[in-house]
Design a protein around this nucleic acid. Structure first.
Length: 268
DNA sequence: TCTGACCTGCGA
DNA sequence: TCGCAGGTCAGA
């Protein structure tokens, strides 16, 4: 589910509600999502501590406490919910955060692909690529990455070790915006296409953030609402519908074992 | 570089 | 009942 815009939307919504509140208690109802610690480790490290900030790297959320971080990846169906009826929890609530001021936060994930890690004051993301909204992401940097490999451009965009944060929906939309065929290899792009790709990555992601992300099934905002960006998608899930630019029917294929949508006329 | 596995829900 | 789904990783 959640790609960079959805994770950023969640971060922006959580921050004003929970920042500086004390995490009084944390309940793990499904401990399997913790990858490098036990529930006891997390309780010892975080309970009684204030949530100082929430950061994002790629598709990861970083809950910053004094001396520790709780790092969360939402997988395909993970959501944070502000309020649920505590008398009868909905299905698949795996973690409950009890904060001061009687505030609660619920982590729900029906497919259990989401993961959590406990880290110290520093979190190492060096194995991952560059975040598109970090200062390091420049046209020069993108060109370097493109020229280091000879891979399919769409598979490249979705590789978190190259650029962190782009998933299948936005890879499709970015390539449409840049008028680049998803079948192109990274070393086949013209300088003009490289520039268009750079601009499209930020533009498509930025617009999706402004629209609170894209909801297809599981994704909801912290307030429990759908995003709005699904109403503005140009190619994703639009197979056989006319291209908004030229009217040619959008085609669907499979690339890197993922659904791929493109306009065969204006993406070259 | 590609495939399967991890999970569950939904729609055809 | 089966195939598919917005992610990631190990292993072939």
């Amino acid at each position: 589910m959640p790609e960079l815009p959805e994770v950023e939307t969640i971060r922006r919504q959580l921050l004003p509600i929970y920042k500086n509140e004390i995490l009084e208690k944390i309940d793990f109802r499904y401990a399997g999502l913790l990858k490098n610690a036990t529930p006891d480790d997390v309780r010892t490290a975080l309970e009684g501590k204030p949530l100082q900030d929430i950061d994002r790297f790629g598709k990861f959320l970083l809950f910053r406490f004094p001396e520790h971080h709780l790092v969360v990846h939402l997988g395909m169906s993970g959501v944070f919910i502000k309020d649920v009826a505590q008398s009868r929890y909905p299905q698949h609530i795996h973690v409950v955060f009890h904060f001061s001021a009687n505030k609660h936060l619920y982590y729900q994930d029906f497919r259990k692909f989401g993961k959590m890690w406990l880290y110290g004051s520093r979190v190492d993301f060096s194995q991952y690529g560059v975040d598109p909204f970090s200062p390091e992401f420049t046209l020069k940097k993108l060109r370097e990455l493109l020229h280091l490999t000879r891979r399919n451009i769409k598979v490249f965009l979705m590789d978190q070790h190259q650029i962190a944060g782009i998933g299948n929906i936005y890879a499709n939309e970015i390539l449409f915006e840049a008028r680049i065929s998803p079948f192109k290899r990274t070393d086949e792009l013209t300088p003009e296409q490289e520039t268009a790709l750079f601009r499209s990555i930020r533009a498509v992601l930025e617009r999706a953030i402004q629209r609170f992300g894209t909801t297809y099934s599981a994704y909801r905002t912290v307030e429990g609402e759908s995003g709005e960006n699904q109403h503005f998608l140009k190619v994703y899930h639009r197979a056989e519908q006319p291209c908004v630019r030229c009217g040619t029917p959008i085609e669907k294929t499979t690339l890197g074992s993922r659904s791929t949508f493109y306009c065969p006329t204006c993406q070259v």
